[in-house]
């Protein structure tokens, strides 16, 4: 009897866990205005800052600007429409290559001049040609497309643009005469020059992280109530000190006033390092634990990679 009870409890627990979990493509969140202008830019002055986990003092010897928030779905849809009109971007099937492998994907694409290829161990050649920007048939895309015209899903208009490849992010910035930030530029913008307890800031707002500082895995934010602990993106600049539907956020801007530099979505950076094809991302996401939100942590993937947890912002 006891054995049967034990086995029954095991089965119940397992079946319970297997119950359909909400998927992030199936539920539409309410529209929330975060109150931070996604069109704004912040100036990061020249100077040295503590770089990396071990605070190597590094100098960026020029002023530069970075977007205060990630590029939103609405902004990206606007770019696609403008670029389709002037023939820079096309919609249709395009080859996606990874080493010797290649497969066709339906989506928005444009040309890319290719990367220098060093032929180093494990490096894959990124050849010149048409590259996928966003897959139009993939689940998780917050844009809709009809007859070559893109629109953002209204409730997601001010959420960060996701499901975008490095090519798509790079193309957006270049189209407007900007660029993706380098990893060093990104990190300086995220942590500034201050020290606490003998170390450079590990998080954009300072030394410690609270659950309502950022959108990360199991942070119990407003959207995790809808989607489960894996959550979903939050609107850009959501963690600005306001209270939404009873959920109180902390103002989590970086020392230069940038939002979402920790959590929400990983952000593509611009570096193409020698001897490898990977592109690097910073900031962590709603899919990752808080350790990945520390400003020196990075992630990498091939430039053809896209994900509901990866977005970008530009620098100039």
């Amino acid at each position: 009897m006891k054995r049967a009870l034990f086995i029954l409890s095991l089965i119940t627990l397992t079946i319970g866990a297997c119950a359909p979990a909400p998927n992030i493509g199936a539920i539409t969140p309410p529209y929330i205005d975060p109150g931070v202008d996604p069109e704004s830019w912040a100036v990061i002055p020249a100077g040295e800052f503590p770089h990396g986990q071990h605070d190597h003092m590094t100098t960026v010897d020029y002023d530069y600007e970075m977007m205060v928030t990630d590029v939103t779905n609405e902004q990206y849809a606007r770019f696609l429409n403008e670029a389709i009109t002037d023939g820079t971007v096309h919609v249709g099937e395009v080859d996606v290559e990874a080493g010797e492998q290649a497969w066709m994907v339906e989506g928005a694409y444009g040309s890319y001049p290719g990367d220098p290829f060093d032929g180093y161990k494990h490096e894959e050649e990124i050849k010149a040609g048409d590259k996928l920007y966003v897959p139009t048939q993939a689940e998780g895309l917050r844009l809709t497309e009809a007859a070559g015209v893109f629109s953002s899903i209204p409730e997601y208009a001010n959420h960060p643009m996701t499901m975008v490849t490095w090519f798509g992010a790079n193309s957006y910035c270049n189209y407007y005469g900007w660029r993706l930030p380098s990893e060093i530029e990104w990190e300086k913008a995220a942590r500034g020059t201050e020290f606490a307890s003998g170390y450079g800031y590990p998080f954009p707002w300072g030394e410690h992280i609270e659950r309502n500082n950022a959108n990360y895995y199991s942070s119990s934010d407003l959207f995790e109530k809808m989607y489960g602990k894996l959550g979903n993106t939050t609107p850009v600049g959501f963690f600005n000190g306001k209270t939404y539907d009873g959920y109180e956020t902390l103002d989590s801007a970086s020392p230069y006033g940038l939002y979402d530099m920790a959590g929400n979505v990983w952000q593509w950076t611009g570096d193409d390092y020698p001897d490898q094809h990977y592109r690097y991302m910073r900031g962590g996401s709603f899919f990752t634990y808080e350790v990945d939100l520390r400003v020196w942590k990075n992630n990498s993937a091939g430039p053809q990679y896209f994900s509901p947890a990866v977005g970008f912002r530009c620098a100039r």
Binding site: A17, C18, P20, P22, N23, G228, L230
Partner: peptide
């Protein structure tokens, strides 16, 4: 399973 649909299997 892709990232969009992983929650069920991750929970289990």
């Amino acid at each position: 399973v892709d990232e969009t649909n992983q929650q069920g299997i991750v929970n289990t």
